[in-house]
Design a protein around this nucleic acid. Sequence first.
DNA 1: ACACTTTTTTAGAGGACTTTATAAAGCCCG
DNA 2: CGGGCTTTATAAAGTCCTCTAAAAAAGTGT
Lengths: 405, 405
Amino acid sequence: MARGRVSLSTGTSKGLVLDLIRTLGPVSRTDLAAETGLTAATMSNVVRQLLDEGLIHEAGLGRPNGGRPVVLLEVDTSARYAVGLQLGAESITYVVVNLRGAVVGRLRAPGVGASEPTEMIAALVAQIRHILLGLGIDEQLVVGIGVVAPGPVDVARGMVIGPTHMDAWHNVPLRDLIAEATGLPVVFDNDATAAALGDFWGGATEGARAHATVYMGLGVGAGVLIDGTVFRGASSNSAELGHIVIATDASGRRLIAEDLADPTAVVRAAHEHPDEVGRLGLAGDEFAQFTALAKASTRGDEFATGLLEESARHLATAVTSLANLFDLDSITLAGPAFAIAGSIYLKVIDSQVNADFFARSQHGIRVKLSPQMQDAAAVGAATLVLQSELAPRTMGLAPHHSLVQ
Amino acid sequence: MARGRVSLSTGTSKGLVLDLIRTLGPVSRTDLAAETGLTAATMSNVVRQLLDEGLIHEAGLGRPNGGRPVVLLEVDTSARYAVGLQLGAESITYVVVNLRGAVVGRLRAPGVGASEPTEMIAALVAQIRHILLGLGIDEQLVVGIGVVAPGPVDVARGMVIGPTHMDAWHNVPLRDLIAEATGLPVVFDNDATAAALGDFWGGATEGARAHATVYMGLGVGAGVLIDGTVFRGASSNSAELGHIVIATDASGRRLIAEDLADPTAVVRAAHEHPDEVGRLGLAGDEFAQFTALAKASTRGDEFATGLLEESARHLATAVTSLANLFDLDSITLAGPAFAIAGSIYLKVIDSQVNADFFARSQHGIRVKLSPQMQDAAAVGAATLVLQSELAPRTMGLAPHHSLVQ
DNA sequence: ACACTTTTTTAGAGGACTTTATAAAGCCCG
DNA sequence: CGGGCTTTATAAAGTCCTCTAAAAAAGTGT
């Protein structure tokens, strides 16, 4: 009968203060107290604990204005590290980030070829160890490993249940196997959620109360943060942008974002014009073809530009629905597709969302590109573990508590 | 520079326990402890405080199973009351609810005719006093007044900024004026959000982690609860269901739920067939015509049924987007429109949402009618003040705290 | 009546805040 | 250049909420 556990005395303040020090740059105890609403005395204690743990250090004095000058605090960038692991369709991206969320090491490798789950895990872990060794980072300083994959994922059990082209990973209890093999904490989530958190740590969501990161690889998804905390919904499958209805065809059938907006759809649309496909020499896998179209558009090719703009308009429709439902005030675009064609999508989405947004009389929506475009999900995976180990937060109730029977 | 205030030591447990006692019916301290994760000792203390405040009372013993029998607790239904006030286009609904959220008094009156804001307020307050007197309820036992109106509303300032047909109320600081006139706490919100909270208090959301109440009067909106806490977004204008794109017309223009799904749209669609309008004798205001169509449908009229089913399918499309983005596991339908034509909408929405829902492999979505159909928003307004006064909760951070500068 | 089980309460301790008071570190003015 | 003033940081004491451990209470069965 015992269920979850209500976290009433949160004890979250240390993490919150660490977040603020990281975000606000060199900052005084006084400012932190004002920012959080805690008293100066409490802040003094919290800060001392962070100093003792070596997570932050003092960094000189501020300009005095009539009294004792403030002591500035900043995070000790290289005090801790986290590893991020992004499982993609054809490749695996490894990153190592420091306490600021900045990337200090990165590697993209083809998927591990082994067929046995245990062998795949062993290969992953060996690769991680190899990277850390190359960077000269003591494993003692690594707080954990974040693993992300395209949705849908089973966050509770830590495994991929997602796209069929990743069936090698299906039903493998990734989180637990990697945790066992390394002895480190491992968190598991979907790529869009991770990318959103990565943007938060990268400072891209500054000032936002309700933020979404739209993540586009071959498909499209989104992650939502409310006051810096991941929005999860009932089963961590929230913000499923690809399945939002954005149009109807001639016969009245509903069309969703996946049908019209993502790179797969763009390539599909291109192939309705075989002559243009031939002219542009489109070949290879879908992402290669999307890349070729984006490059052609940059060169001024009208056909390619038309396709991308149409995709952007459709995506903007889905994003507008997202913005209206979550009452967003901040959006970033992340992922390989935007790394290639971000500027064209940014322009269209920014103007369309801000024009059609319901609460626009009350506030605007800031739309921008993610600071980590290509590797946003991998970086986000690493920040996921930073947050869960150093600055845990829950939304009101503990993750799996259900308030009423 | 001082901003919001982080609520770290929540002190919410008393309210949480009250919620549980109300929801679980007669329940023992032991069960409450198991349910919340608190210890039996803590529960004993919390329960004593609630007993001292007169909010709950002991209600006999449970069946003993080998030891001391449990003492059952239940809320003292008539220990406190709250007033709910729903401002509608043509009428104002007043309700009084008890501690269980059950309606003990209700009145629907035409809008107050005065033109001066101060006079309108005075008339409202006089009406409230009159109702309480008629019910024999001591004003001392009234915890506050909840006021709701169709969106958009400015929750922070407590005023209507909404639909043009309610311009008599625009820019009137309703919340503060009523609070001043009565000396009671007043909360202000939009009708759909209130209806969702009303469903929570009414027990309709039992077991839900992510719930939405779809509220349809003349227009349509929704309110979302995450673990029983209102989801607000950046400016309390979240879940704006009426502005979700659900189709495109022949020329590719985007059509939103307001265009196709709500009662206004149904009536508009009917008037594209003047002969049918004549046959059914449609006349009067829009809602009267919608009511006539619903009645005709009940009689088996094919034209009316067709219109309503089409509206339901369009609404179901918007609700599916809502469900996919919030990863809902529970939906209720509330408001005057569903009070009249709920069964037809329920059937269509239930089947369509559960068929098209993205995370359906992980969990289903329970769709049902609200226990308070017609007066859901007014009842919700009253529960809004019950919750804010007796069981306050915030999501992680205080309502208006912005985590980073 | 007495042992046994289960529920509830009491007592004491600890953590995280707050408030109040004190110390430290710089400016400013005579 | 030294004392008063202002601002920042720490210390001490108290509050609130929770936990653990142990006692008390209220039934059942022998």
